[in-house]
Simulated assay, not measured.
Amino acid sequence: MSYEAFHDGLRDTRFPLNHGSVEMPAVGFGTLFRDLGVTTQAVKHALDAGFRHFDCAERYRNEDLVGVALKEVLEAGTIRREELFITTKLWNTNHRPERVEPAFEASCRRLQVDYIDCYLIHTPFAFQPGDNQDPRDAFGHVIYDSGVTLIETWRALERLVDEGRCRSIGLSDITLDALKEIVAVARIKPAVVQVESHPYLPEWELLEFCQQHGIILLAFAPLGHGMEPNVLEDTVITGIAKRLQKTPAQVALAWAVQRGVAFLTTSATPSHIQENINIETLPQRAMREIKEDITTRVRFNSVVETGVPGFIPRKKAE
């Protein structure tokens, strides 16, 4: 029996944004690769598999390689620009308001697109402005920029929306408290909040706040980034997968969409790319088990504390 014969539409879920008439495909493809050389081919594989939501960033240093793949499919006419949802991010060294528009324009140029569907502040931490993306002092400590506040940067993003080349704006790697501060004073509310989230870090409180304000919660590392303790080896997840004849990854990703969360997965392997999009609705019993029976709580990426992205290696839980 072919997969398509029983495909139930969960993978086609789209969440409406609170600004404008744009919808974000819940199933997204991240473009952060250790080996930048795989970027163009991986994006092409993802497009072939059916991904239409792509998450990029100035900091990933491969927007131009993503742009090559996008340009190819758009010029071939097989996919229209309106079908794609493209996100990119403002890096920490460009938080000063006068640096925001040039950074945005540079991302558009590299991606070879006329507009961006969603522009995110990569982290709420401003770094020393300049060309060095990772400014450090003589002791190796990050040099932060105390000369700009997050709301000043946000106001510059609001102006991008006013100008029409940026469909929506949001925040990444932000805590609930910091998000509340922005929502309270923003003229244009955040449309998207991107944070680490998976069955070991469900972020229920943040999700509830986002849903109250019409903000889409977008999960990165929805499979736990292969770190220990391994989400995909959790007995609750593997038990459900066995029962439903799905992979543990498909169970964790379906859980995300069904609870109202969009997700990003990244792979350069065509079989994994296909597996990650072939999700189906889980029975309510499975949703309940994941919520109630998984008690492990782990944050794998400390970026919310420092603004420096990076997954922390952990020893296997005893």
Rank of each mutant, 00 (worst) to 15 (best):
F29P: 00
V22Y: 10
M24Q: 13
P16Q: 05
T13F: 02
R59N: 07
F33R: 03
Q41N: 12
F33Y: 15
K71M: 08
T40P: 02
D35S: 12
K44C: 06
F51P: 03
V66E: 00
V68A: 10
V38Q: 00
L70W: 04
G50L: 07
R14C: 14
G20V: 12
D48L: 13
F33D: 01
A26M: 09
P25V: 02
E72S: 15
A57T: 04
H45Q: 11
H19W: 14
R52C: 08
A46T: 03
S21Y: 11
E23N: 15
P16G: 05
G37H: 09
H19E: 09
C56S: 12
V38R: 00
H19R: 14
L70H: 05
L36Y: 08
R34G: 14
A57C: 09
A76W: 06
R59Q: 10
A49P: 10
V73K: 14
L32P: 03
V22D: 07
P25E: 00
E23G: 09
V38E: 00
T40E: 08
A49G: 08
R34T: 13
G30P: 05
N18F: 07
P25C: 10
K71L: 10
G50A: 11
K71V: 03
G20M: 06
L32T: 08
G30C: 10
P16L: 06
L32V: 13
L36V: 07
A26Q: 07
L65K: 10
K71T: 11
L74N: 09
G37P: 00
G67S: 05
A76Y: 05
R34Y: 12
D55H: 05
V43L: 03
S21V: 14
D35T: 12
A57E: 00
A76D: 14
D48V: 13
A49L: 11
Y60N: 01
C56L: 08
L65D: 00
F15C: 04
F29H: 04
G30I: 02
A46N: 05
N18W: 07
K71Y: 09
Q41W: 01
E63Y: 03
V66S: 03
L65E: 07
V38P: 01
E75N: 15
E63V: 03
A46F: 06
D48H: 12
C56R: 04
V43S: 00
T31S: 09
H19V: 15
G30V: 06
L17S: 02
N62R: 08
A46K: 06
L65I: 01
G30A: 04
E75K: 15
V73S: 10
A46Q: 01
R59C: 10
V43C: 04
H53E: 04
V27K: 06
F33T: 03
V73Y: 12
A26H: 07
D64E: 09
A69T: 04
G37M: 07
E75C: 13
N62T: 04
A76S: 15
A69R: 02
V66Y: 06
Q41P: 05
G37N: 08
V27F: 05
L70P: 02
D55P: 08
Q41M: 06
R34I: 11
A76M: 13
M24H: 11
T40N: 01
P16R: 12
A46P: 07
V43P: 00
R52M: 09
V38I: 13
G67F: 01
H45S: 10
A69W: 01
L65A: 11
R14N: 14
H45P: 02
E63I: 05
A46H: 06
G20H: 13
H53W: 05
